[in-house]
């Protein structure tokens, strides 16, 4: 019966540690993404000229590397979360599950 197992997990301090750790990671990374994206959007709305200024005298503007960087950061942050989850969260989760008395 699942309900009994859930009650056991509830008593396990490791579970609460896992929840805390995972949500800290998830929300921190999510905040980075949200702040980054909405700053970018507000820059476009309020000061497009700033993004449009030349990077180093040539035709390439500051906006181009910033735009590409946002895409790369998005990919890298998903990589970081997956790495962290594979390395730590899954292990702790496995321990929690194996501690359940059948």
């Amino acid at each position: 019966m699942s309900a009994e197992r859930y009650e056991q997990v509830k008593q396990n301090p490791q579970f609460h540690q896992l929840v805390k750790q995972r949500s800290r990671w998830a929300w921190s990374l999510a905040s980075i993404i949200l702040i980054m994206y909405f700053s970018f959007i507000l820059l476009i709305a309020f000061s497009p000229a700033w993004l449009g200024q030349s990077l180093s005298g040539g035709v390439i503007t500051i906006g181009i590397p910033i735009g590409v960087l946002i895409i790369l950061v998005a990919i890298i942050l998903t990589g970081i979360y997956v790495y962290k989850a594979n390395k730590d969260f899954d292990r702790i989760n496995q321990e929690i599950i194996s501690e359940i008395k059948q």
Binding site: S2, A3, R5, Y6, V9, K10, F15, L18, V19, R22, N93, I96, I97, I100
Partner: peptide, 11 residues
């Protein structure tokens, strides 16, 4: 219980 399942995948 839903929360525990969503976190651990039990069930």
């Amino acid at each position: 219980h839903q929360f525990i399942r969503s976190q651990t995948g039990i069930g």
